[in-house]
Design a protein around this nucleic acid. Structure first.
Lengths: 343, 343
DNA sequence: TAACAGATTTATATCGTTGCAAACGGCCTT
DNA sequence: AAGGCCGTTTGCAACGATATAAATCTGTTA
């Protein structure tokens, strides 16, 4: 048909060469435009044509060229996950990614990891992605009370879902875990065990869930009127050694805590190490309730009391919400708060 | 100049609009082609022009459109990491990713995670990437003796680096850890402790490093003439519960092992759990030497003997090698074998 | 029979970039 | 002063897809 002399479909062309709309057009005798629309199930193309084209596309294994689609439409079919390779990938990003890949399965979306290195502002990767339209949607965690990334993304009306809430007045999509309830329940459990001097290891202050954990903890200890304290000089982000050292120091002082609320596997292990090193048996002289975000704890002995947070489910939910947001759903409808299972 | 009437650079155009080669061409009064070449430091463009153009590009924050570049050149500027979200991400992909992001930093390459789901053949993601030119290079692990992915990629002459070796005759880039040496050293340590009945937990048979570990282990036990055995019915891939159960079963039988070689944190914890549950203290009644691939072990008590494998370094090396491969280096020059630190 | 409406299909232009071949200007040679 | 050469620059086309507008082809109606 058109340009028949310039290209010779089927002859001389290596079979490995990627089929394009042109290939299908040549086979069906239709125009490239028609093929494009037929594959898009456009109503103005005859039903029969659509089916024929789609069948041919399947037969030859056609897949649209993402670069071309992206150039033409501006849509990238990319979801970007911002991770701090230094700390987040292990504890957190890992499970999120597992959920995300599940949510993006059988969609045209790919998952791209955008690292956020510590030596650069948190806003940099976001700006980069916005500026260069590197993705259709964004996922990140470690959300702050008045998170500048959230502000920027809201201003630019760019789809995103963050893990954790903010205190900004504009509603935005998020997936969060009720850390207030976690801390409350964990504290109650220790109190029910008869523990009377409780300590909690909090995340860095700038994160929203620092407040949540603190509130839950304070609510429980005040209700029960037991003594309490906060880990000093270390946070949930501190390396295990630092947490062990801090806990160990405290054990040498008078009236050390006899109950610990720990928001992560690694810090739980760190405190257990300090206890063990001082001749205590976790669960006997001092109680521990920890957050369990993976199967890492299963083989730990002595077994410790845990409350589950399912990060894989969170990741999958974030993926789902983001896809909905991209297709135009209202942000206020895209909020999920997971509660710890009441035990 | 050209099309001056159609576009009005600088006026009325929102500042947020992405600058393109056209923008720079309009500013400098040069042709788009010239700008392109100047930015590419092409020798046929006058040095002064190049510098001027590059300065303008910097000033206005120009970044080339990846979709357009990709469409035009066929290069994607993407490195794809194939991961099994079910098992790999946590143990392995995590550290690899950390290294990879470091290696790709300050290069135009992005890291895309391509999940390999268990219910599909291992070759599928590779075929998908090849067929649709989804990446310029590929990284994967869990390499097999005659890995079909390696074969396919070699046939297609597509750049890749795998973690682990094959026994294929064609040389190809890889990064590996000397698991033969690991198993040998670990076994020797246990023998030096006076252990006389050793057990090793091996990876699934199809993986190359199954053979390596087995050889190293057998070499050491035969040299010393001690009794030995293999974990039965479980592998390094088995869930912790299964490993604990298998170890526990064995402890009830006559003459249980008094020394364990364990190739990963989780399985080490699993065996420790079995020992503890039966009233043994790891390190006393039975020795353990484990491979340490993260900081997870630091807070574990009792402390156990470990041999390090630095997966972050491996990931970074894989990134480096892949970039070299992409720019044309010979595969036979791109092989790295890390040896365990002699302790 | 000619004109028309509706249902399909098609041509054209465009996204931003780069390879190619041609063009340009200045300078030197003859 | 005409020709040739070199160092620079430029126009054109193309990558593969799609939005827009225009062009076909039906079958119907006046």
């Amino acid at each position: 048909m058109t340009r028949a002399g310039q290209r010779d479909p089927g002859a001389g062309r290596p079979a490995s060469e990627k089929p394009t709309l042109r290939t299908i057009a040549d086979i069906t005798g239709l125009a490239v435009t028609t093929v494009s629309r037929a594959l898009g199930d456009a109503p103005q193309i005859a039903r029969e044509t659509r089916q024929r084209v789609q069948q041919v596309a399947r037969d030859i294994g056609y897949l649209p060229d993402r670069a071309a689609q992206r150039l033409r439409t501006g849509r990238t079919n990319v979801i970007s996950l911002i991770l701090d390779p230094h700390e987040e990938i292990i504890n957190f990003g890992t499970s999120l990614m597992k959920g995300l890949t599940a949510a993006l399965r059988d969609t045209p979306y790919h998952l791209v990891i955008t690292p956020h290195f510590r030596d650069e502002p948190a806003l940099d990767p976001v700006r980069y992605i916005l500026r260069n339209r590197m993705a259709d949607g964004l996922i990140f965690s470690r959300t702050e009370l008045f998170d500048p990334r959230v502000k920027l993304l809201l201003e630019e009306d760019f789809p995103f879902v963050c893990h954790g809430r903010t205190e900004l007045s504009t509603p935005h999509p998020y997936v969060d875990y009720d850390n207030e309830a976690f801390a409350y329940q964990a504290t109650r459990r220790l109190i029910a065990q008869g523990r009377t001097r409780l300590a909690i290891l909090l995340p860095p202050e700038r994160f929203t869930f620092h407040q949540h954990m603190r509130y839950g903890f304070l609510r429980a200890v005040r209700e029960a009127g037991v003594a309490y304290e906060f880990f000093d000089g270390v946070t949930l982000d501190s390396p295990a050694e630092a947490v062990t050292a801090a806990a160990a120091r405290r054990l040498l002082e008078p009236e050390p805590p006899d109950g610990y609320i720990l928001g992560g596997e690694v810090s739980a292990l760190a405190v257990m190490a300090a206890l063990t090193d001082h001749g205590f048996t976790p669960g006997r002289e001092a109680g521990i309730v920890a957050k369990k975000t993976s199967d890492l704890f299963t083989p730990i002995r002595p077994r410790i009391d845990t409350i589950d947070e399912d990060l894989v489910a969170a990741g999958e939910e974030m993926g789902r919400l983001l896809l909905q947001r991209i297709s135009g759903a209202q942000p206020s409808q895209l909020c999920t708060l997971y509660r710890p299972n009441p035990a």
